[in-house]
Amino acid sequence: MKQTRVLILLFFALFLAEGTQSFAQKKRFDRSKQLIVGIKGGVNFTHPMVLQSHSVFSPTGNSANGSENKTYEPIMKNMGFQGGLFLLYRFTNQISAGIEGLFFQYRYAYSNTYTWADTQEGTSFTLEQKHINRLHYFEIPALVRYDINIRKITPFVQGGVYTGFLQSGISQTRSTQSSGQVFPASPTQNPPTQTNDRFAKVSFGVLGGAGVSYFAGKVMLSLGGNVRYSILPPTGNLHRYNDQASTSSAYLDVPDNIRLLNLELYISVGVPIGLKGGSQPKFGTNYCTF
């Protein structure tokens, strides 16, 4: 986490330094009709938006309402990662469209605390459970990008849609049981469990974001961020309670019906491929000053 922040800061410093120089030169570049291929990667942060709560526990007359509600971890604690390839075609100097192929990990966690009291013995028993879910998708975002200027340092905005195909859903539970009388608090980390059938096989959503690209010779270096919003909830009704691994009864865990709001931060490196007028493709070979 700390390393990620240092990297981001370094990247911004580089852009600021180069941006000042580029702005002084007031150069404009012809980048139309170029096909750029590259790699991208980074980290992402997930905020689950609850549409409908679900719990294994059904409150009865003898149990307090509320303990079955989940407490979700804040977005910055739900860090996943992503990486893959992208293809970008520049229709004009400022408008381009692209497609990406990403391995995308969403991570989100929540916890429950349950308490039982023995009125005869005067004891109480507390069970705290933290459930961590990691969803791995092969995602294909399709984006339209608009470059705000055509200088060496180019801020841009982009937006589009994505479809994701679930590769694996993994759930892990950490339990802590404590009793004032007998047991000391003893956290237990259960092994990760494959819970693919609790999640939808296909995800779909919209995304939009902004960033800045630095064009250096043959290389386009970009730093950007996208916000994703899943239109289709990643959790399914079909096997919410009765998944193959019996997660609901083994760990007393059942996923809420949620949508994912995700902040993706990435760095990408791209190079133009194909020829433009038969010459070596290179950013900024044809430019003029204002």
Binding site: F57, N62, D118
Partner: peptide
Amino acid sequence: PGYFKVYDDQAANN
């Protein structure tokens, strides 16, 4: 949809 429910009682001695 199918379901799995536990009908809890917070009285530990029950």
